[in-house]
């Protein structure tokens, strides 16, 4: 269990020796969630291959519980946006994000997903996926090495550890679970529909 703030007292140590572990509900809940983050298969471009290489024998994402790539967004916890988001694809990205059930996380992998990357000046490239959906972890690189992706997933795991049950969007009143607006195809560019 990862509770970095608390130290283990001698009484706890004694209990552990007898096979009894003490933790909080929140600690247990977050441990379960962070140790089995299931990504969605969303390889758009070149970074998808480094994502697959991370799942491959040499780098082995399975050690972190994240090797089970789900095809359907309804069954996934994490959307790793690997590759350039073109303007034609952007409405699909938002639609898929809206279809993911909470708790959901987004990792923007690679320079293209972070900011448009080497194709930033293009007329048909979205300059960063965070224009349309909220991103939790940004991984720069072109493409980022598999070790970078693993570090990104570990960063996400640390973020999950620090989420408190009281403040999460899917329980209670705090947080933002609205559906993100889906951009429409306009005559010259993508157009976000009017809010409200």
């Amino acid at each position: 269990m990862s509770q970095p703030e608390q130290e283990i007292t001698p009484e706890q140590l004694e209990l552990e020796r007898r096979g009894i572990l003490l933790t909080t509900v929140e600690g247990l809940y977050n441990w379960g969630r962070r140790s089995s983050v299931w990504p969605m298969m969303f390889g758009l471009a070149c970074c998808a291959f480094e994502m697959m290489a991370t799942g491959a024998p040499r780098f082995d994402l399975g050690r972190f519980g994240a090797e089970f790539f789900r095809a359907s967004p309804r069954q996934a916890d994490l959307m790793i946006v690997c590759g350039t988001v073109s303007k034609k694809m952007a409405p699909m990205v938002v639609r898929l994000y809206n279809q993911m059930p909470e708790p959901r996380y987004v990792i923007a992998m690679g320079a293209c997903a972070v900011s448009g990357g080497p194709f930033r000046d293009g007329y048909a490239v979205v300059q960063g996926v965070d224009r349309y959906i909220p991103v939790d972890v940004y991984i720069p690189g072109c493409p980022p090495r598999p070790e970078s992706l693993i570090y990104g997933i570990m960063t996400l795991q640390r973020q999950i550890d620090q989420q408190h049950l009281k403040g999460v969007p899917w329980y209670g009143k705090g947080g933002d679970t609205r559906e993100r607006p889906i951009p429409q195809y306009g005559p010259h560019d993508l157009v976000l529909p009017e809010e409200g």
Partner: peptide, 23 residues
């Protein structure tokens, strides 16, 4: 084939500039 059907411009023309049209 590459751009959506509602798109009106032809981007590879020399007088098309993404900055001017899209901002």
């Amino acid at each position: 084939i590459y751009l959506w059907d509602e798109f009106e411009d032809h981007p590879l023309r020399k007088d098309y500039s993404p900055e001017e049209v899209q901002g």
